[in-house]
Design a protein around this nucleic acid. Sequence first.
DNA 1: TGAGAAGTAACCATTGAAATTACAGCAGGT
DNA 2: ACCTGCTGTAATTTCAATGGTTACTTCTCA
Lengths: 146, 146
Amino acid sequence: MQISSRFTVALHIFTCVDVFKDQYKVTSDFLAGSINTNPVIIRKILSQLSKANLITVARGTGGVTINRPLSEISFYDVYQAIEPVENGDLFHFHEAPNPECPVGRNIHKLLDGKLKSIQNAMEDEMKKYSLADLHSGMEELLEKEE
Amino acid sequence: MQISSRFTVALHIFTCVDVFKDQYKVTSDFLAGSINTNPVIIRKILSQLSKANLITVARGTGGVTINRPLSEISFYDVYQAIEPVENGDLFHFHEAPNPECPVGRNIHKLLDGKLKSIQNAMEDEMKKYSLADLHSGMEELLEKEE
DNA sequence: TGAGAAGTAACCATTGAAATTACAGCAGGT
DNA sequence: ACCTGCTGTAATTTCAATGGTTACTTCTCA
């Protein structure tokens, strides 16, 4: 099982907006062209990002702007805006284990803390990266191309 | 998106085998009763675990035994046995970004390392927990019940 | 007011998870 | 040698989520 491509698409969107914001008006069609998908898919993701106050999408005229300095938007912020994780739990349990079994009625108490710490390890690492890292990383890559 | 319940079910299975191995023959029906699911689901998971050499399932007579000391089976071992992650990559990309776009043709180079480190953070944390922790944890919980 | 763009509803196809039924194959007890 | 209980596994079904697509409404600016 994988985390849906919407997360990496969102990072792709931010990178595009950052790179092209001065040369082009960055619209959903423009982004769909770079990512090679459908504009409606992009709009749905843009909608999630703007509900999380990370970006502003101009109605009518079109175009995306980023609401905060790049260094103040982490991968985790993007992840949270995009992934509708149930209860915020990464790990899924089989519902309704048997309460008459000593193991069944205690399995949550046994596992919850440990699983949470695994999830936290991942999320904490996500907090270490920001869109500013994407900015500098992309600059380097583009220089190398020349 | 969540990691499938097969992982937590597998941990539940190990706990049951450990707790009940001396009192009962632990069969797929027995396990299905504790977890409250279908025996065939259990057998599929048992099949994955035995292919990974973590357990042995007795044909004919039935019953599950764990192949190694509990302290030598980590959550990560179980996770790897259970989750058929494509290429081992936790994060999914949208296929075929536009190679004519400077961002599109560099997005993988830009993100791959960072995403890998996030995945590694999770997997490393998984390696910190073993079935021995489940054994001691469950003992504590059962004592409290009395 | 018209053009371009976002918002969104309504579909559809595909995929994977989980459940279920059915049956063949195996091993131990009698 | 057979019966019983259990595993292995195929086939099917249901359900939800993802991703794609079309179509239409709404908005803003020139």
